[in-house]
Structure formats: C-alpha cells, structure tokens
Simulated scan of single mutants.
Amino acid sequence: MEHPVHKLLEWYQRNRRDLPWRRTKDAYAILVSETMLQQTQVDTVIPYFRRFMTEYPTVGALARADQEAVVKHWQGLGYYSRARRLHSAAQMVVDEFDGRVPSSLEQIRQLPGVGAYTAGAVLSIAYDLPTPAIDGNVLRVMARYLGVREPVRQASVLCLIEDTMQSWIQLVSPGEFTQAVMELGALVCTPRNAACLVCPLVDSCYAHDLGEVDVIPAKTEKKARRKANVGALWIEKNGSILVERRKPSGLLAGMWQLPAVEYNGSEDVTSHLHPLLEELYTEGGQPSVEESTAPYLVPMATERHLFSHVEWSVTVYRPVGLTLDLGVAQASTDRMWCSLADLEKLAWPRVYEKLLERLIGERVKI
C-alpha cells in the first residue's frame, strides 16, 4: 500500500503554485520569504519579496544596508520587528558565518528572529536536511490527519505531530515534503470549508472518517483586542510637517508618525493633546500654551487599524487659534520638520500612510 507521504508529494507536483521563492535553493532568499510569510498571506508577500530581493539580492547587501531603509522597503507588510531582526540576522551571517546562512540547526537558531519553524523551513528547503517545519497550518493538517481532538499546542500533541513529521520527512525529499504540507494547508486543508474530496490524504484521514474536520483541531478562545484611541497633531509650516519617531521598542518600534498620544475612548482628547502641544511649543524652555489661550482642535481625518492585540482609531487634529508662531514648535532627535517631498523617504505605519494619502492627496506618494 502506498504511503500517504508519497500521495502527498504526487499531489504537490501536480498542484504546486509557481511562487518566486520556489525557483531557488538560495538559503538567504528562503530566509527572506519565510520571514515575510510569518502572519502574512502569500499574495501580499509576492510583490514585496520581489522588490526586496531586487534591492537586497544577497545577504551581504542586506547586512550593509541602513536599517531604516530596510524598514522602508518593508512598509505595508506590518510586524516591522521582523524586518529589523532579518537585518540583524544578515549582519550576523556576514560577521560570524562568513556570509553563508548556517546549515546546522544549532547555528541557524542563533540568528535573530529565527525560531524552530523558520529554521526547519530553511534547512529542509535550502539544504534538503530532514528538519521538519511546523507552524499553525501544519499543526492543523496533521491534527486532522491523526484525529487529535486536544488543542494542538498541548505538549503531548506537539510531540505526536513532531514524531509523525520526523518519520515522514525521512522517506522523501525534505524540501519537497516541507512545501507539500504547507501547500496542502493553504489550498485544501484550510481552517474552514476544507476541500476533503480533493485531498491526497483523505483515505487515511481520521478527522474525515469521524466527520470531525470542522471541529479538529480544537478551537481556543482568542483574547479580545484592546481598543484605544490615538490623537495625532497636524502641525505645518512652510510646506513642512512636524513628525516624530516612535520609541525603539514595542509596537511599530522606530517608525515615523505625526506627534501623537494614545488614550482610552472614554477620555477627552484635549486633555491629552494640550499637554503634548505644551511640550512642542516652548518659549525660553518654559511651556507657553496656557489654558486660556489653548487652541481649538479641528478633526481632519480618522482611520482604524487592527493589530493582533489592539484596535486603533487614529484621528488627526489641526490646532487652530494657537497664539504662537508655528516656527516655535521644537524639533529634537526624535522629532523633526519634514517637507512633503521627503515624507516618502520615511518608514510609516500603514494607518499613517492612509491618513497622509487622505490629507495630502496626490501631491506625495507615501
């Protein structure tokens, strides 16, 4: 009787998508693609991957690049810490591994941002080593195939799936196997409405035999997103806008935005933006925005954005009635005046991209 892994690979050869990172065995290119594909859909990644590889065709080119330029090329993909870790990983490859992405599990796991899944994907696809790559999609496929009703992150379930994957990957080309399981999870064994009738593993799939494909793997409660409002200031002078860099760690670390504060929805935005204005506008080092002369904040545009753990509602306000010259607004290491023409050189979070596109229209491409 034909082993199911052979059926899987026969199906893969007939149905595999022609993706740009499947046209190479270059470990660097595969590392880039796998980093981009973390929490991002394939169709979204394709144009970013092509542009990124054109700009940084080798690990050395990426290592030599300015990190802010790297993040700018990542703009729109989200989860920007991935770009910074990838840049750091490239520098480590050049400095410590003679410019070659390591082919051992111990060494590749030393690279920033490379966890067990990414390591398995690079080692199996680029170097054809029998190191399984197990992510959420693979866990779903194998949990259904094995008929496991328990949560897939449970230690005993992980161990069972890892053992099965390890035994299967020994029987065929590791790189082909890794991509075949990924493809099955993407095209057939999907989270909802799985296409069991065309699945190469259907004859030996326990979840299908039990009629439990829709309930395996066990669903886990998702933590509700925290909701937060963000008030941002549009302060302009002589064709330039005051912008600020976010903190070097945390959400959207190091990216640029309009001067802003985050606050709870039940709070009054003026109680947060007026102190920010006091900080921005100083005379002789002392706050100069008095309560009696505080400006009226005119809302200009609002955009919502969903992160994995928080939902933002960002509103841009223009201060009107400020008695001081706008030229008094202070720039610092993390704040500066930026001309409209230079806005596109900065790395902006997607929500601010959309806001700027609305506020300045076709004048500037962000």
Rank of each mutant, 00 (worst) to 15 (best):
K222H: 08
G113S: 06
P217Y: 05
V172T: 12
S308R: 08
A143Y: 01
L86R: 06
T40H: 10
Q154T: 11
P349D: 08
T282Y: 00
L324K: 08
M165R: 04
Y28T: 03
S271T: 09
N238F: 00
S271G: 04
A341S: 13
G147Q: 11
S332N: 06
D325A: 12
L343V: 08
E353N: 09
I235Q: 00
R22Y: 01
V71A: 15
G60Y: 02
P299L: 13
G115H: 08
T220Q: 06
K247S: 15
V93H: 07
A228P: 00
R16T: 07
S88Y: 01
V71R: 11
C205D: 06
S332C: 09
M255R: 09
W234G: 00
Q166Y: 02
L129Y: 01
A133D: 03
A63P: 05
L326K: 07
V32Q: 11
P287H: 01
L326M: 14
E212I: 00
Q257N: 05
E150F: 02
V42Q: 07
V298W: 05
E353W: 04
W168K: 01
V310L: 15
T54D: 14
V59T: 02
W168Y: 09
R335F: 10
A294I: 02
P295F: 01
P200I: 05
I134M: 01
K222T: 10
Q38S: 06
L77H: 02
I241H: 03
Q67D: 10
P151C: 08
Q38K: 15
A341I: 02
T44V: 13
S167F: 00
D135A: 02
E176S: 09
R245G: 05
E55C: 13
K219E: 13
K365L: 13
R149N: 02
A228I: 15
R22F: 03
I366R: 08
R363H: 13
I134P: 03
V202P: 00
Y117V: 05
W21G: 07
D135T: 09
T40F: 12
D214K: 14
R140H: 04
P132Q: 05
S266R: 14
L86A: 02
V188Q: 05
H208S: 14
Y12T: 02
L210D: 12
L326H: 10
Q107M: 12
D135C: 05
D214V: 08
T24Q: 02
